[in-house]
Nucleic acid binder design. Structure first.
Lengths: 195, 195
DNA sequence: GGTTTGCTTTACCGATCAGTCAAAAACGAA
DNA sequence: TTCGTTTTTGACTGATCGGTAAAGCAAACC
């Protein structure tokens, strides 16, 4: 036996960042070689083919990024929770040490219509996020923190849509300004709705 | 002289639909040949190279799709205008006769970070939309239809973000349901904000 | 220390990409 | 009909794609 000359988790993070930054198609194996410092065969040995690498990147993203954001929903107060969620996402999107935008939003846009296997995986992740939002709004409604006629499904969908939109806007040239403004805006709207 | 054997505008629409459906990279010249029924040399003769074709597609999209949506902002009443805008976008996104999602949102995500020329063109289109929203909110504020402390820039940004988000959500597996719900949701939020 | 195991390196494969060239075919004008 | 021009057609180029095969080599075990 001979042990691998690299740290798997660390390499996976570099792969994730590469896909995150450039998307699926534009991230060739050559790009991954440059990003990780490994040769192609080492990548194939360790992670399988390109589809598998992307799948592992999505998993890694979900564990390290998405889960962190969704944790804000645990708060009892809906406005605190949502404000925390939106601000945390904006912080993440505008962090200069990370790729811009969102791996899943980009992947969904790029692969949703034509790569069945990869598309399904991201669909599943997105529906999971939506489900978490739905449950949160239902709990808030049960505990009397929402109006009686509030529709949790509707509110969960608008939050979901806003989160996706911010991911796209953040990649625009004026992304930094616009993303912050959008975060303030959606917060203000929910403030008036929940008051 | 010999006249071309195809209708330029009609061909441009097919090119636009192809880029709209599959994105930039995944739309090879071969795909465009199949979509238009023309051979590659005819395409190059008529429209230049692939980048130029994409640029023309974005222009065509802006003329036929984006402009139609933005027309809703002309209404004096902000809630009527925004409800009309969001519903019209949902109708468009869910029209089975059109490609799903949004050409510009997809292009921005795919090309924003790495194709300077094409990215700039879409940046410009997006900023133009943002500017139209900003002007609309400023006019509504001047005519006393918004609160005195309302921030037009903030409101324009959140609408922009919502529109982009809906474009992404519409490409998801549950897109039809979620997009409608998101439209209802953002409408409800603005209702309570403007009331 | 020799052997074996498996990671690493290098070279290569067929397919596909955007873009080009030159011959062939079709049209308009004479 | 004939000529000239432009479109159309099909073959081709060099580059790059994802993926693979077979060496080369370093480490662990006996």
């Amino acid at each position: 036996m001979r042990s691998a000359g690299f740290d798997r988790e660390q390499t996976l993070e570099k792969i994730t960042d590469a896909f995150w930054e450039h998307g699926y198609e534009a991230t060739s194996i050559g790009v991954l070689e440059a990003a990780t410092g490994l040769k192609r065969q080492s990548l194939y040995n360790a992670f399988g083919n390109k589809d598998a690498m992307f799948g592992l990147a999505v998993d890694h993203y979900e564990r390290t990024v998405s889960a962190q954001l969704m944790r804000h929903l645990d708060n009892d107060d809906p406005l605190t929770a949502l404000t925390g969620l939106f601000n945390a996402q904006a912080d993440m999107l505008l962090d200069p040490d990370r790729p811009s935008g969102c791996l899943v939003a980009g992947g969904q846009q790029e692969l949703g219509n034509r790569r069945a296997a990869l598309g399904k995986r991201m669909d599943w992740l997105i529906l999971e996020q939506h489900q978490a939002l739905l449950v949160a709004f239902e709990l808030w409604k049960e505990s009397g923190r929402l109006w009686d006629d509030a529709d949790p499904a509707m509110l969960a969908s608008v939050v979901m849509s806003q989160i996706r939109g911010a991911s796209i806007v953040a990649r625009t040239s004026k992304g930094r300004t616009l993303t912050r403004q959008a975060t303030q805006g959606i917060t203000a709207l929910f403030e008036s709705y929940l008051r």
